[in-house]
């Protein structure tokens, strides 16, 4: 149980992961259902490992890599994706 809490404690938003760092997806419940559906279509679900590639200009989209594919989403939505840094 303590270990569980330790893991919980390390949860953070995808938007706060620095470019070049990797993280594992923990929760997608905060994002809009349509976006969640699209991410699932692309194979991004709880347990997927992502690497943040770069951030767009002026608060523009965040690009990440997952299983060899590159995907861009808005930083606001990335702020609602829960991940655990690796």
């Amino acid at each position: 149980m303590f270990r569980q809490q330790a893991v919980e404690g390390r949860r953070q938003a995808l938007a706060s992961v620095k470019p070049g760092d990797s993280a594992e997806v923990r929760g997608l419940n905060g994002i809009s259902p349509m976006l969640r559906r699209r991410l699932r279509d692309l194979g991004v679900a709880e347990g997927s490992v992502l690497t943040v590639l770069r951030l767009g200009p002026f608060g523009g989209p965040l690009t990440f890599e997952c299983a060899g594919q590159h995907i861009g989403i808005r930083r606001e939505e990335a702020g609602r994706m829960e991940v655990a840094p690796l």
Binding site: L39, P61, I71, G72
Partner: peptide
């Protein structure tokens, strides 16, 4: 509705 953005970069 708010707009939605997600794109695959091939």
């Amino acid at each position: 509705e708010p707009s939605l953005f997600i794109v695959e970069l091939p």
